[in-house]
Design a protein around this nucleic acid. Structure first.
Length: 283
DNA sequence: AGTTGGACCTGACTGC
DNA sequence: TGCAGTCAGGTCCAAC
């Protein structure tokens, strides 16, 4: 049976889209927006309403918050949540349109930004509010794991009052923004902590290891331009595969020998999600 | 308030 | 070969 590697765009994948798109789209005007799947803009009256809001605006900036991308359109920032399977491509208008493209933004000069999302959990949100701290979808996020706000003190206090598994805490976007199923497993391996340990049971030393592991794993994954599966459901903005799947230590490696100690990687289930860990390296 | 479970969705896989 | 059923997962939302 071929191992199916499911894709969830997390912080490294979102950051890859951001850094690849930024030099090509910032400063460009959006001449036309086409939303072909109403579900992508489900909190609005109609796709036409969103198309109207976006049309003619210039992209002043492209930033990332957690797993979300924020296009700084003048006056109306546009947030794209990638959901579980969202990809952002940069293409020429004449390039063939792949399956599952639900939104196309045609830029001056002939390029297009295309939002592809097989599972349709992604969402496009256009906000009237330019102050990020007042945009509800972003305001609820916890600190950026690669920023200064994620401190030892914050982690220690936040984990101490959680009875839930430490993996659940890491994936809680309100606690730390941008970490999902793949990278929580990899981070906890790097920190040598079992994913199902109650968050409040971590020692001070373990919290310190966790604080070090978070940026270490995420930065390396960004260098690799994200994690692609063998079904190629995640590729970068130019359609190229990421490379971090070659460096995964535990995720989707159940039964295979640990790359550090050789012990078979174990799999458990947490809230319907796969949990992968090395029984020897992680205690 | 923290935590849990269902709903949303498609495609790959399983079993008859 | 075909097809119904199952599973997976990020996030929201309702309910303990």
């Amino acid at each position: 049976m071929a191992e199916l590697l499911l894709q969830m765009p997390e912080l490294p994948e979102a950051e890859t889209f951001r850094s690849e798109l930024e030099p090509l789209v910032v400063g460009k005007r959006i001449e036309r927006a086409e939303i072909t799947l109403p579900r992508m803009v489900r909190r609005y009256s109609s796709p036409g309403r969103v198309e109207e809001l976006i049309r003619g605006r210039r992209i002043g900036s492209l930033k990332r918050r957690g797993k979300a991308l924020v296009f700084g359109l003048d006056g109306h920032p546009m947030i794209i949540h990638l959901g579980m399977s969202g990809n952002l491509f940069i293409n020429d208008a004449s390039d063939p349109l792949p399956k599952h493209v639900h939104a196309v933004f045609s830029l001056e000069g002939g390029k297009q930004i295309r939002f592809q999302d097989q599972r349709q959990f992604g969402e496009i949100i256009v906000e009237p509010e330019t102050d990020w701290s007042r945009i509800p979808d972003l305001a609820k996020y916890g600190p950026e794991p690669l920023g200064k706000d994620l401190t030892l003190d914050y982690l220690r206090k936040g984990l101490a009052r959680r009875a839930a598994p430490v993996k659940a805490a890491l994936m809680d976007q309100g606690f730390v923004a941008g970490i999902g199923n793949i990278y929580s497993d990899e981070i906890l391996f790097a920190a040598e902590i079992r994913p199902l340990r109650p968050a409040s049971s971590l020692s001070g030393r373990e919290v310190e290891r966790l604080l070090q592991a978070i940026p270490k794993v995420l930065r390396r994954a960004i260098e690799c331009r994200g994690t692609s599966g063998n079904d190629e459901s995640y590729v970068d903005a130019f359609g190229a595969l990421g490379a971090f799947q070659h460096e995964l230590m535990v995720y989707q490696r159940a039964g295979q020998p640990c790359r550090a100690c050789g012990a078979p990687i174990e799999r458990a289930v947490l809230q319907k999600r796969g949990v992968h860990f090395c029984p020897k390296c992680q205690e």
